[in-house]
Design a protein around this nucleic acid. Structure first.
Lengths: 248, 248
DNA sequence: TTTATAATAGTTAAAAAGACTATAAGCTTG
DNA sequence: CAAGCTTATAGTCTTTTTAACTATTATAAA
């Protein structure tokens, strides 16, 4: 990052569509970022949306986004916005697509680079102090109407997530560092909208040797506690070098 | 497209890094596109590069690219540039990534959206009349030094191609509409840098039911002529709906 | 007609996927 | 504390797929 994200202290750092005329003077006025932030709660897939309380687009739901500054990359602008929004510093974040239709924003030419991010349950609490807008986790099956082309962006992000999650071990970024095999299975079921066989899923996962079996167990459940596992990034990268292909 | 690509008649429509100060006045001066154009010849994977004859970057190799106009999307700007460069109108083209490091271009802030394109052998001839620069197919294993971050862009494009070609039937866009099974196999071998077993590859391909067996055969070969096949896009999209997953 | 080259067909063993059944562990409630 | 419930975990068996081969056939060219 070009600059410390925490230097951002005011709400204006987050994309405020309703105040589009009052741009800070250190941003490129045609370029924005928008992020589809995924989270998984109660085995349902959710997206983080914001709603502005003032301005032209007050009351309308939108993806969280922000402007790109002259002295930062587009990626950095997205990281900065997300850190400010969620308070989390090691977010899984990937570029999704550039949306640049001439008429995607009325009366303005704004080209946005869309991202998708994966957030762990432990980090679902949203940083407080956002007086000028609502921030909310919304079930992916129950999205409200969104401004501009944001519905298209979510649509593409969901397709990308569904595809990528089957071919690369990125799903782990939607779980806490330590998780049970059933949590992992339910995550896949939520994302892919399928039902999986428990013993087979379990066997397949374990055979890949990508899970570190911790000695800890689940707590606070009213049944036999399952063992907690951790994703082994080091082993994955090693296997990847050797041509290993993660597949669900 | 916002505008007919053929309205472009001069070389200035293609990114001319050496003349960066002499921008047309209908472009967004911070935004460009750059494309990694892949082609497969003699079972080797190649990339289309340009070399400018005049200006600051004369003599240096670069990816073909262009500016984004106010009245077109970034995607359209890439299509326009590629059509002008290759003369081909139905190019397979996908967004790759936005490269936006503050210092990627010296003394200038230029944010580029990178694309990758796949060109069929039949279309490898480059449209004539590019007086101000060289255009050349270069073996992927034998790349010259490139300006700016273009080597990184090719690197990412190659990774993306290698990954995507294994999971989606896009490889066909690097072959002519009609091809033999051995050509297809050699294409995969060239892209993935592996050796495949002929009978097994053949069986696997045919079992997918994605190939229309034409009644035609190869001509001009000094051995038994192989049957020509065509990729069946319609069947693929149907199977895709049903959850079918292309895998090599 | 021989020869070279690649097309195409077939075989077999090992591995993986899929659909199950069975048992064990541990909380909860009467 | 025992019965019952829920989930963890182990194991079986069948079907498919993959992988490594061998064998045969067609065709242009010498």
């Amino acid at each position: 990052m070009t600059e410390n994200a925490d230097s951002a202290t005011s709400d204006e750092k987050i994309f405020f569509y309703g105040k589009i005329q009052e741009l800070p003077d250190d941003v490129i006025d045609t370029l924005s970022n928008d992020s589809v932030v995924f989270g998984c709660d109660d085995s349902t897939l959710k997206v983080l949306l914001v709603r502005h309380a003032e301005g032209d687009s007050a009351g309308e739901w939108a993806l969280p986004g922000g402007w790109v500054r002259y002295n930062e990359s587009v990626d950095d602008s997205a990281v900065r916005m997300l850190q400010h929004l969620t308070g989390v510093h090691d977010i899984y974040l990937e570029q999704l697509h550039v949306f640049s239709d001439v008429h995607r924003v009325p009366h303005r030419r704004i080209i946005t680079t869309a991202y998708y991010a994966l957030i762990r349950p432990d980090d679902h609490a949203i940083a407080a102090g956002f007086s000028t807008y609502d921030v909310r986790w919304v079930d992916i099956h129950d999205l409200p109407e969104l401004i501009y082309d944001h519905a298209d962006i979510i649509d593409m992000a969901l397709h990308r997530l569904r595809h990528k999650v089957r071919h690369e071990p990125i799903g782990f970024n939607l779980l806490n560092k330590k998780f049970t095999l059933l949590q992992l299975q339910e995550l896949y079921e939520a994302i892919l909208d399928v039902k999986l066989d428990k013993p087979n899923f379990r066997r397949k996962m374990l055979k890949m040797n990508l899970l570190i079996s911790s000695n800890e167990k689940q707590t606070g459940v009213s049944h036999r506690a399952a063992k907690l596992y951790e994703f082994d990034e080091a082993v994955y990268h090693e296997l990847e070098q050797q041509g290993f292909n993660f597949e669900i």
